[in-house]
């Protein structure tokens, strides 16, 4: 059996959607459920799926949790199942990334307590989208056509430890002039996981290991990525 690093629990419509989107980004995910019918439906749609009894820790180990699996998604439509898988998986592997969907704010908090890394609230997101469509239709149209329409990408670019950019203030990069890119922020992984938005006015000093989050056309992003890797990018004057 291939060692897949990404597993999806729950063969709902959402599981299907996530698996498809992951596949588009070149990530091979395997769907699991305890219900053979659901698994059958996923197999029929051409996805890779399997039956597993997630209440049994040994079974979870045998599919790689605690060993090679890095990320799991809990996408059951029932809240308690998500909670259960989260708890079991967290007990098996403290470093595992667990992404869950939740039904409400309070259940989201429960999942976080159970050990989920990220909780996604589909209802909150959809409600927000509907509201955006009403309140700011042009902005939504623009985002749909550009950022989510694959013209413009959001990407993270890691600054290598050896980079000559170390110590340079972020603003000096002047990416918006030199690369047609907008820097949304930077994450200093040594400090925290949190994104420091570049509009805060703190002219962050870059150092190796920082992650730049940029937004812009795809080719510009790959140009920047290549330049950063080859250390061709000089801090501007």
């Amino acid at each position: 059996m291939a060692r897949r690093e990404t597993l999806i629990f729950g063969c709902s419509a959402m599981g299907h959607e996530v698996a498809t989107q992951l596949a588009e980004r070149g990530i091979d995910a395997y769907l699991y459920s305890s219900d053979p019918d659901e698994v059958g439906a996923m197999l029929a749609k051409g996805l890779q799926a399997g039956v597993v009894d997630y209440t049994d820790d040994d079974k979870l180990c045998s599919i790689g949790i605690g060993k090679w699996v890095k990320t799991i998604f809990c996408l059951f439509s029932e809240e308690p199942q998500n909670l259960f898988v989260t708890l079991s998986a967290r007990a098996l592997d403290p470093d595992l990334k667990i992404i869950c969907v939740c039904e409400s704010v309070s259940s989201g908090n429960k999942l976080l307590t159970a050990g989920a890394t990220k909780v996604i609230d589909p209802y909150e997101i959809s409600g927000h989208r509907v509201h955006e469509l009403i309140a700011r239709p042009y902005l939504v149209e623009m985002l749909e056509n550009t950022v989510f329409g694959k013209h413009i990408d959001i990407a993270e670019i890691e600054i290598p430890r050896s980079s000559s950019l170390s110590g340079a203030p972020m603003d000096d990069l002047q990416l918006s002039k030199r690369y047609n890119l907008i820097v949304m922020g930077v994450v200093d992984l040594e400090l925290s996981q949190e994104l420091i938005f570049s509009n805060r006015g703190m002219n962050h000093l870059l150092d190796g290991g920082d992650m730049l989050v940029v937004i812009g056309p795809k080719d510009e992003i790959s140009r920047l990525r290549a330049d950063v890797e080859e250390d061709k990018l000089e801090p501007g004057s």
Binding site: A13, E17, V18
Partner: peptide, 9 residues
Amino acid sequence: NEVVGLIAA
């Protein structure tokens, strides 16, 4: 679902 898919991916 699509939005969740996008975010998850």
